[in-house]
Design a protein around this nucleic acid. Structure first.
Lengths: 193, 193
DNA sequence: AAATTGTATTGATATATGTCACATAAAATG
DNA sequence: CATTTTATGTGACATATATCAATACAATTT
């Protein structure tokens, strides 16, 4: 149950067996069926989740009822609305399972204990967030410099697995384009090849 | 010289006088005149900089020679190309002083020492990066959901000081629109008022 | 003070992408 | 397995923003 978490953590920091045993006690296993929600807009994000199995999306809905996907979370990834998790303010995001999922949840109080008791986790989360920031900055710059097709090609190269497992209209929504545009791009690309 | 740094650090963590004295020894003061560069594309980002005074921009140049601004850094902010700083890979970014600046620089080796000797700094940087991630995610979502005018209005509300001190074509470049579009938006807004 | 460079504005036109509408195809559901 | 529901594809048309070009003026530099 905790193998993947152990693997991911020890890729970045070293923890003793005792420390990891303690760590385990702070997590709450949770299964979600496809289409179930981990978080809905307006609710406080009570948990940070580690994805053991499955895939989820985090998205907002604008005034025109269009969905915009902030991120997909696959096996081995963490997910949370950081702002809501840290401040207890209601979230603007929805988190939905796109497949049956197995998650490990940790509450804010438990997370605080974890960081306090095992300072290496402070380092671990710093590194995680750092990598996420680097990736998000790149995506932001890409949103300014790249065409819709370039964004799609880049995504396929970076996360081929994700592109295959997720419906195309959600890929479009992640890229910040419409499903029609993505469909046409794919048509053009197939024609050229 | 270190007052602003002390203020910013102690807003988030507590450090003893001794610890901060030690911290001081790891920083290198540096002055930049307007238009001087702290980093140029292709060079490794050797320093993380704390801005004591002035304002700088971090930007990339695309194939069409158009500049795209990732961020402005004002007094009290940190700046670095995190990826290049951490990996020693050449940076894709340029960092230019937009006014005469006073900076405090810290190298990667010194930064490692700082985090090791004073673990509270691990926490400090985790919080900094966390806040930056939250802000960058919001900007990314905004780039998908907002019109050019909405982005401009939001920026003026969030960083009025920045908008006033920086030339308009750079504001446009930060927003991901052309200078002509920003000029027209401003014209429209002035007309409506 | 002249010359150069940077900055902002405004008009005419181009274009990538969005919007709406409908047709089909695939998947979920009873 | 029949039937909704969800997902994808394609055409005609709309639109926000980009592009190109010309001008004016402010701010540096010599």
């Amino acid at each position: 149950m905790f193998e993947l978490l152990f693997k991911k953590v020890t890729e970045n920091i070293s923890v003793t067996e005792d420390e990891f045993e303690f760590c385990k006690t702070l997590f709450l296993p949770k299964k979600l069926r496809k289409r179930q929600y981990l978080l809905q807009e307006g609710d406080v994000c009570k948990y940070t989740a580690f994805v053991e199995k499955g895939i989820l999306r985090t998205y907002t809905v604008d005034e025109k009822a269009t969905e915009h996907i902030l991120q997909f979370s696959l096996e081995g990834w963490w997910m949370a609305d950081l702002y809501s998790f840290l401040t207890n303010e209601p979230s603007l995001y929805n988190m939905e399972a796109l497949e049956d999922c197995e998650l490990l949840l940790i509450t804010k109080p438990s997370w605080d204990i974890l960081l306090e008791k095992i300072p290496a986790f402070e380092r671990y989360f710093r590194i995680l967030i750092q990598n996420n920031l680097i990736a998000t900055q790149r995506r932001l710059m890409g949103s300014m410099t790249e065409t819709a097709e370039e964004k799609y090609i880049k995504l396929m190269k970076s996360f081929p697995d994700c592109v295959q497992r997720v419906p195309q209209h959600m890929i479009a929504s992640y890229l910040g384009i419409t499903r029609e545009t993505l469909s046409r791009i794919r048509g053009l690309m197939a024609g050229r090849k």
